[in-house]
């Protein structure tokens, strides 16, 4: 009987482990990524491949150099790479993507002690770093075209949110922005980051995650809901100055952020109450940046700012224990 295993109870375990969760999120991102590939072609494939491979390589190298166990098998580096790629313009040069991976894995995650200890979403840390350091490359948005189109030159242009901001700066009203058919951002036929263009694909992925119970509904619903309510109020007050809520919901990075970035388990509160506070905070900050900030898009900044508040939210929303007197 010497070969028996002995451990503390419990002796059985749910099959849903960390690699399983990472796999589910990756599966859920696939529709969004495919839409990106469809509209942006080969460059999008390159960006995704470079980001995923470089993230895994950087993580393995760092862990090797610092003498830690190599944990690339848990799938978190693959996921970080994929999320990073989906947050970059499809025309990003390879060095920009690799730099992003380096920042995401090392500055965003490993310096804090690896998976589970990072206060900020690694992919967003990298994205914001690149956005501030390389504003030109990071805001050169190739316009969508069909994967099968034969046109040789890539046309670049503004994202709908960017166009909106320009219109307000130059003409003082949103109505000056080029008219947008809401069906285009819903399906993905707009300029933007590789993975954020199709609200439909992202919502499908998000619903998959909620159905599989990988994430709870609290963050996406409260985030999107608070953006809708807040932009709705301002649109109601002055439709000339403020775009309508439907536009805000399905353009830009809101869907990607709400379903995939703000739901990153490591960097969000652990209780449902905390998740609601977190999500509403994200929504409010996003809207503030979009309406009055210098940048056209505020999802990344909003999530990072709220990430910083997670310890406080956790403390404030600690559940009352059973039998508390």
């Amino acid at each position: 009987m010497k070969d028996l295993f002995v451990s503390s109870s419990p002796h059985i375990h749910s099959p849903e482990d960390t690699p399983w969760i990472m796999r589910q999120v990756i599966y859920a991102l696939i529709p969004g990524a495919l839409i990106g590939v469809y509209f942006f072609g080969i460059p999008a494939v390159t960006v995704i491949a470079v980001a995923v491979v470089s993230c895994v390589v950087v993580e393995a190298l760092w862990q090797k150099l610092t003498g830690k166990d190599i944990t690339i098998a848990d799938g978190s580096a693959v996921l970080t790479g994929l999320l990073l790629a989906m947050n970059l313009p499809s025309g990003s040069p390879w060095w920009l993507v690799c730099l992003g991976s380096l920042i995401a894995i090392i500055v965003g995650k490993q310096v804090y002690g690896g998976l589970g200890n990072n206060p900020f979403n690694p992919a967003l840390v990298a994205r914001v770093f690149l956005l501030i350091s390389f504003p030109v490359q990071m805001t050169t948005w190739p316009q969508p075209r069909s994967f099968f189109s034969q046109a040789a030159d890539t046309v670049t242009g503004a994202t709908p949110l960017g166009a909106l901001k320009t219109a307000i700066f130059e003409h003082g009203t949103v109505t000056a922005a080029p008219h947008l058919n809401l069906m285009d951002p819903f399906l993905g036929n707009i300029g933007g980051s590789l993975g954020e263009i199709s609200a439909l694909a992202l919502i499908l992925g998000g619903i998959y995650l909620i159905v599989r119970k990988v994430i709870s509904w609290h963050i996406p619903v409260c985030y999107i809901g608070s953006v809708a309510v807040m932009t709705g109020i301002f649109w109601f007050i002055n439709p000339n100055m403020y775009a309508d809520p439907a536009f805000h919901l399905i353009s830009g990075g809101l869907m990607l952020g709400a379903f995939f970035m703000a739901t990153d388990m490591v960097t969000t509160p652990i209780t449902n109450k905390g998740k609601i506070v977190f999500a509403i905070g994200c929504g409010v900050i996003t809207v503030i940046i979009r309406l009055w900030g210098g940048y056209p898009e505020g999802v990344s900044f909003a999530i990072l700012i709220m990430n910083a508040l997670v310890p406080l939210i956790n403390k404030a929303t600690k559940p009352g224990k059973f039998g508390a007197v």
Binding site: M1, K2, D3, L4, F5, V6, S7, S8
Partner: peptide, 16 residues
């Protein structure tokens, strides 16, 4: 005596 599975801490291991 057996294969121990658990935290890498002698005090914890002594408990099982």
């Amino acid at each position: 005596r057996y294969n121990y599975v658990g935290p890498k801490d002698c005090r914890a291991a002594q408990l099982v």
